[in-house]
Simulated scan of single mutants.
Amino acid sequence: MPVNKLALVLICKLSVFPKEEFSMFEQFQQRISDLPNGQPEDYAMDRQYLDNIEGIAEKWKLEDVVIVRSGAVVWKWHKQGSDRATPIFSCTKSILSALTGIAISEGLFTLDDPVEDHLEEWAERARQTEPRKSDITVRHLLTMTAGLDWPEFDKPYFKMKKGKDWLHYIAKQPLTHEPSHTFAYNSGCSHLLSAIITKRTGKSALEYGRSRLFDQLGIQTVEWNEQEGVSEGGTGMQMTASDMAKFGLLYLQGGKWGSEQLIHPEWIEQSTSAHNKGLLHYQPPLYGNYAFHWWVSDAETNGWCDYYFALGYGGQYLFIVPEHNLVAVIRKQVEGRNNALLSRRLLHEYVAPALL
């Protein structure tokens, strides 16, 4: 085993994640522009349920739906007639999680490294307000348990965006809880992760992602906002629905794409396993337990099966359902936070019943 992968195994201390076999998909080239297409009936799905999506698309203000099963696109629909790169909002966080895992596998930093070890200027400012901020680690950033005062669904994020020095803004936020004790949704944590990647690689997260992930997946149209050379950690990415589906399929396959292992399977397992309750009890049920910048839903809670997902503001969802070899991208017009529930209802009321 290469040294960098062995290091990740020792860090994570996890059992090996079982690899899904997709022999049909592995016959295709590693770097492809489009996923193979298939018919629903050839992949044990009822076309009628899927075709019914078009009937409610306008009412629910859907923009894109892409359904992938066993490595093939079995159904897709685009309001504009074609797939376009549009903002994916906080789905950006899950892609940042993948890049963090890749950087860790390369030995650039570890989960339990203090943030101050990599961001000296941030650390100096943070310690001026609260010495205990020295205890904040990479793991705390990923699980959003840094303990910083960041209330009301990321409200400070909008204040941060108006400023010129985002790292300074994050550093001066009060510490209201001991790190690791309390979940608080915080795009500031995500931006610190992006800054660490830039510090350790000398590249923005976008540039690093192109060299380690996007090019390998054939993702060419991705864009990502930057602030002083640092990709915006919590949001700011634009991507097509089909490219989101490819990213989801990579996770479904345990980090493997063709013959390349792009993300270590240990990271796939750990980063998509619940580490705290997140916003599990929020109503309406948009969210779930929280992992490493992924949301997790269990069968007992959702009444169907275990799955995990990326979620962007207004109803931009990427669902990965390992039990059914399924990836679903559902994007809709932004109408506010709670109307995002329609995208999740689509998964449960139209996609799930189509599975045979």
Rank of each mutant, 00 (worst) to 15 (best):
H281C: 10
C91I: 06
W295T: 13
I53L: 15
K277M: 14
Q39G: 00
S343Y: 06
T221R: 14
V138M: 15
G288F: 11
W295V: 08
N4W: 09
L96G: 00
Q80H: 05
Q128M: 09
I56Y: 11
P2N: 12
Q316N: 09
W77C: 00
Q220K: 12
Q216A: 15
P284V: 03
R47Q: 09
F22C: 02
A72F: 12
V327D: 02
P174T: 10
E26I: 02
T201L: 10
D83A: 01
S33Q: 04
L250A: 03
V65A: 06
P179Q: 06
S94H: 08
A85I: 01
W60C: 03
K76Q: 13
M144Q: 12
D165N: 15
L8R: 04
I263K: 03
S90I: 12
L119T: 07
R132I: 09
G336P: 11
R31F: 04
L96H: 00
R47W: 05
Q316E: 07
G255T: 11
P285L: 08
D83W: 06
A205C: 02
L108P: 00
G236L: 07
P156C: 04
F319R: 04
L342A: 12
G55C: 07
P284D: 02
N338R: 01
G233S: 06
E21I: 05
R345W: 11
L99D: 01
K203C: 08
K133S: 02
H293F: 15
P322F: 15
P131H: 05
K172A: 11
F17G: 00
K13W: 03
E349L: 14
A184H: 12
I67L: 14
V16N: 04
K5H: 13
P114K: 06
P179V: 02
H348Y: 15
I196D: 10
G188I: 05
P87S: 09
D64N: 14
H191V: 08
N186V: 10
R47I: 01
G81I: 01
D34V: 13
A57D: 05
A103R: 03
R47S: 09
A352P: 02
E121D: 12
E63W: 02
A103H: 02
G315W: 09
W75K: 14
T143R: 10
P151S: 08
N37F: 13
F153T: 07
M144F: 14
M239A: 13
M1P: 10
E349D: 15
